[in-house]
Design a protein around this nucleic acid. Structure first.
Lengths: 276, 276
DNA sequence: GCACAATACCGCATAATACCACATTCACAC
DNA sequence: GTGTGAATGTGGTATTATGCGGTATTGTGC
């Protein structure tokens, strides 16, 4: 509609004042602006605002979605919230396997111990099994674990401070490294990014790997906990002296070569194979 | 032609003005917002608010419940919460007054600021109003606040480490005192045990009072937030140099003598009396 | 316990929206 | 001018969301 009548002067096409024809980039900017202001936009609103067809806006949204800047919903688009589903979804994946790992891990904990719990959904499963114990001192950076266990009478929870990583809702960063060093830990349960076929346990980030390395050093006894979804997953960063850990608790047996490699690294493998 | 103005600000979700049809995503957001503010929503309220049928809202609730974001109850939905009877009960007490305090407090915050949030249900209400701001740095010891705000894109949350007090699910103790000192805070919002008739703000414990005193010292601008239930309540410990705070935000006017005493202490009183 | 009201659930009709292929327009360059 | 490629609009069809009426279920007062 509305033939744009390219107002005689083409010398200043970049004038952002009154777009005779709305540039795609301008629409994208407006869409994102509305999105961050209101949390969602409707195709119709934006189409009417710019005087273009719904199809055009839809195509804009598709492009922006491909760039990861929003999520398309029926009728428009919504601000991308990568976190809500992520943690919740991860927790429900293989919940039974993780629960089995948690139950087994709890058998390694005795009343009165100081327990260090890493962040992650598998360690959260461990935390769920700990209320049966008495008089524990829990150290963790995970918000969910802290919230869960601080409600258990007779236990103390120390939350290790730091910047909160929205991805796993746990503290990270330099403060965290400091905080870990302050505690004399009896037993630690650590997550990890993946268990490589050669038996090495690796992590997604340098910071995470460093943190876990220090956790191992600081604990009298450190166990990795991983469900079988982590088997064979290759993540980029080596965890420093991971082989100083006491063992690895899993919900299914890894491939034979991996098992052999783990043994060579000196890690005890504990399989809690209930069912799958 | 060419509608020049976007016909009202779509950023105000409280305006039920229907542009064409309320986006499902927008309804979901509003439902969750009400849920976190009031703890529960009725099908009828929301349906009337958006001008859609009960069936539609019911379907929305079903979807949100499937995502684990709420629990459906007869007549509407309730916030999904494991079980924190103590904290939950306190939060629902005078929820509207606290929400009003929160909305007002948010007007004192500007994009990009460093905000320190004390623990407590009133400061949690403040936190609920903060997602509208951009690029904030939040410092808090409250698990609930950290969890809430770390999900807001574009903001960073620093959790101040320490031992978790199960009573208010926030960190306390010596680590906390240290942690507070590390941040350059633009504005702080503090709770308090009670507002004595003589205008003094006091606390339940020595540790709490000391912590709040340091928060005041460390912040460029510190405000107490208290709902009227705290008026006249006498708690044992004086908060060190509480009169260095900038003001006190309440949801109803305290008795006249208290007001005068507050003024004498140099505290600005801000009353957000909307409705009750 | 019973009756009444409010609410929930189900299936279907309809409107809104999404998607796709193709025609048209526009900007740019030669 | 004219060709070219990208962007946009148009129409048709598939998909989805919503509302409505019916009936089952639940909550509530007596």
């Amino acid at each position: 509609m509305q033939p744009p009548a390219p107002s005689g002067d083409p010398s200043a096409p970049s004038a952002p004042s009154s777009p005779s024809r709305p540039l795609a980039a301008r629409r994208h900017g407006e869409i994102l602006r509305r999105l961050s202001a209101a949390g969602s936009v409707g195709v119709g609103e934006v189409a009417a605002f710019f005087g273009v067809s719904h199809e055009t806006i839809r195509r804009d949204l598709k492009q922006l979605a491909a760039r990861g800047q929003l999520d398309i919903v029926h009728g428009g688009a919504a601000r991308r919230e990568a976190n809500e589903p992520a943690l919740d979804k991860r927790e429900s994946e293989n919940a039974e396997g993780k629960a089995a790992i948690g139950r087994f891990a709890a058998t390694l904990v005795e009343d009165g111990m100081v327990v260090l719990l890493d962040s992650g959904t598998t360690t959260l499963a461990v935390a769920r099994s700990l209320p049966a114990k008495r008089n524990l001192t829990i150290c963790t950076g995970s918000l969910a674990i802290a919230q869960l266990l601080c409600r258990v009478p007779g236990s103390r929870v120390h939350l290790l401070g730091g910047e909160v990583d929205p991805n796993d809702e746990a503290t990270t960063g330099i403060d965290m490294l400091d905080a870990v060093a302050r505690f004399r830990v009896d037993v630690a349960f650590l997550g990890g990014g993946g268990l490589a076929p050669d038996g090495e346990i690796t992590d997604y980030t340098r910071a995470g790997a460093e943190l876990r390395g220090r956790m191992i050093r600081g604990a009298a006894c450190a166990y990795f906990v991983m469900d079988h979804a982590k088997f064979g997953r290759l993540t980029p960063v080596r965890i420093p002296n991971f082989s100083a850990a006491a063992g690895l608790i899993v919900d299914a047996a890894p491939p034979l070569p991996t098992r052999a490699a783990l043994a060579a690294h000196g890690l005890r493998l504990m399989v809690t194979g209930n069912g799958k």
